[in-house]
Amino acid sequence: MSLKWLEWSQKLQAIAQTGLTYTQSPYDIERYQQIRQIAAEIMATYAHETPTYVYDLLNKEEGYATPKVDVRGVVFHNDQILLVQEREDGCWTLPGGWVDVGESPSQAVIREVYEESGYQTRIIKLLALYDRNHPRHNHPPLRHHVYKLFFQCQISGGNAAESTETAGAAFFKEQEIPELSLTRVVPSQISRLFAHYRHPEWQPDFD
């Protein structure tokens, strides 16, 4: 299924959000609010949600519109990769999440790995920076435009543990990857990360 509707609605929302940030004209404010309403109606129609619900979500976004930043910790041990099981859908993913305001990406990934898996880690290198919205990644549609940063991490302490968001943490061989939470990570990304593990001389991927 084509996701052009999502691309169009995201662009309309970005125009509306940025316009509302800088304009002082009451006429332009009204126009940008109308553009946001159109974006909400497009998203609601194809996502099978109510326009009011989507508009309220979009209305919470303020400031110049830029992509959100998602970080993922890539932890290898004995040729296996660390995954955590999401309580939300019961599927597995690399530990990670949104970068908080005032927090660097490296701080965020160390925090997320610890919170979701119980392991303390240190950063080795950046393996990849991907545009989640790029068609080649095959993520399910999301209302946000997101950049995903994958950091290779090394365990420095801790033990596997559950959290409020995760029901467990475990290491898996490349041929034994369980069902993945596709909103967070997809099989092609896991395969590429294993390739990076086997080729530490590679430069980071992008886009």
Rank of each mutant, 00 (worst) to 15 (best):
V75L: 14
E176R: 01
P187H: 09
Q85S: 13
L149R: 14
H196F: 10
Y130V: 07
C153K: 04
V84N: 00
Y114L: 09
N138H: 13
R192D: 07
R111K: 14
Y130G: 10
G118C: 13
L193A: 13
A170S: 12
E176N: 07
G157C: 08
E179D: 15
L193Y: 06
T183N: 03
L127Y: 02
G96C: 09
E174I: 14
L149T: 09
R132Y: 09
V84S: 00
H137T: 11
Q152C: 00
Q120K: 15
F76M: 06
A128T: 06
E174L: 09
V109T: 10
Y114V: 01
L142W: 01
L94Y: 01
S188K: 15
H137P: 03
V185Y: 08
S188Q: 12
A128K: 11
S163P: 02
E174N: 07
I110D: 06
H144I: 11
N138M: 12
E174V: 15
F76S: 04
E179N: 12
F171D: 02
I155G: 11
E103N: 14
F194Y: 13
R184I: 06
E115D: 09
T121V: 14
G102R: 01
L83E: 03
V185R: 10
A108I: 04
G158P: 07
V101G: 01
P141L: 05
A160M: 05
G157H: 10
G97A: 13
G158V: 05
S163W: 09
R184Q: 04
H145T: 10
W92V: 08
Q154E: 09
C91F: 07
S106C: 10
K125E: 00
I124P: 00
L129A: 15
P141I: 02
S104T: 15
S117N: 06
Q120H: 15
E165Y: 13
N138C: 08
W98F: 12
V74P: 00
L127V: 08
E112C: 08
Q175A: 12
Q120M: 14
R192M: 14
Y147E: 04
V146A: 09
H134I: 03
E103F: 13
T183C: 14
I155W: 07
R143T: 10
R87N: 06
V109N: 02
G157S: 09
Q85D: 15
E116C: 12
L180F: 14
F151H: 12
K148I: 15
S104C: 09
A195S: 04
C91P: 00
F150K: 06
I190V: 15
Q80E: 13
T121C: 08
I123L: 08
I177T: 02
